[in-house]
Amino acid sequence: MSDTQTPDTPKGPIGRFLAASPDSVGKTIFVAVAICLVASMIVSVAAVSLRPVQEANKLRDKQLNVLQVAGVYEPGMDVAAAFADFEPKVLELASGDFSDQFDAATFDDAAAVDDPELSIALENDPAAIGRQSKFRTIYLLKDESGALDKVILPIRGYGLWSTLYGFIAIEENGNDIFGLQFYQHGETPGLGAEVDNPKWKALWNGKKLFDESGELQISVAKAQGPAGPEHHIDALAGATLTSVGVDNLVNFWMGDQGYAPFLEKLKAGEL
């Protein structure tokens, strides 16, 4: 036995650790690490187990927003059943034609944006989205006779603090706006977040995208432009940069880099 060791002295690192004072540095660090590991395991298990519920809620929220922007939602209705009236189509933006390359029911628009084979990096990028998918899932709503009633087009772009994600509903003539709605953003409450205000959203109903010569004229601004009131939406009070962002993203998506080829064919009755 060594000179410094008595019969009661714990042997080995584990023994010395167990015999150490509860306030020792070693035990304090051990407890902290153990708590972190247990907490991270609980969070990971919860995240994995709740993922199906989160995905289902995300899908329902998307369907709800499509119903609302199309003006068919009623409180208490079965969202999934009502959404079944909308026909999803995968649209090739450059040609304005529907693509049969993908299944519209399973096409992942978000994943397509990150896929270099299915997207492009934008040089002219007024909506500040960085990359744009070559394909987008849009939704067709038909009336009881089977004739096209509205098309619901997804849109996104940067405001003041965040990317705004939403839908714009266009009448069957490819020019008249029925409604606009954002379902995700991080704009300032009471200012930029007023994009959610029903009174402001109602301003979009009946506005026209293009003038008689086919030029895109829709504008979100403080003052009405020379194109006239049918193309003007008042900017949000106290939220200039968010309003500019909405103006940029709507003009981007309704323009040649977005849905303009599709809208031209819609107006010409080619779809």
Rank of each mutant, 00 (worst) to 15 (best):
G179Q: 08
P229S: 15
Y165F: 14
D211V: 03
P229E: 13
G228Y: 13
Y165N: 15
S213C: 01
I218N: 03
A202D: 14
H231M: 04
E194Y: 08
G190T: 11
A202E: 14
L180S: 08
S213P: 00
A193T: 03
H185W: 11
A227W: 08
P198Y: 07
A223H: 10
N173F: 08
T163H: 06
W161I: 02
Q224W: 01
K222W: 09
A227R: 07
G214H: 11
A221H: 05
Q181K: 15
L203C: 08
G159W: 00
Q181V: 06
Q181R: 15
L164T: 07
K208N: 01
N197T: 09
S213T: 11
A202H: 11
G166T: 04
I168A: 13
G159P: 01
K201N: 07
H231F: 13
F182K: 01
Y183R: 00
F182T: 07
P198Q: 08
A223W: 02
P189S: 12
Q217Y: 02
A193S: 13
S162E: 08
Q224I: 04
L191G: 07
Y183V: 03
T163R: 05
E172D: 11
V195F: 05
K207D: 04
L180Q: 06
P226M: 03
N173L: 06
G186V: 09
W204R: 05
Q217L: 04
F178I: 04
G206C: 10
I170E: 03
F167L: 09
G228C: 11
A202R: 13
H231V: 06
E171I: 01
W200F: 14
L180D: 02
Y165D: 13
T188W: 05
A169M: 08
P189N: 11
G225Q: 11
T163E: 13
A221Y: 01
E187N: 07
E212N: 12
Q224K: 10
I177W: 04
W161R: 05
W200N: 07
K199Y: 13
F210I: 01
I168Y: 10
G206H: 10
I177K: 04
G186E: 07
H231T: 09
Q224P: 02
K201A: 12
I177E: 02
E187A: 05
A202S: 15
K207Y: 10
G214E: 11
I177L: 13
K208C: 02
H185I: 05
L216G: 02
Q184S: 14
G214Q: 08
S219N: 10
P226F: 06
Q181G: 04
G225R: 10
G228P: 08
S162M: 08
Q181A: 09
K208V: 00
F182G: 00
G228T: 12
P229H: 12
N175T: 14
E172I: 00
F210L: 03
K199A: 15
P189M: 12
G174Y: 06
N197G: 05
G179F: 04
W200D: 09
N205G: 11
I168S: 06
N205S: 13
F210K: 00
A202C: 11
G166D: 05
P229R: 12
A202V: 12
N205D: 13
A202G: 12
E230R: 11
P189D: 14
I170P: 00
I170M: 05
L216W: 07
L216A: 01
A202L: 11
W200K: 04
D176V: 13
K207M: 06
K199R: 14
A202Y: 13
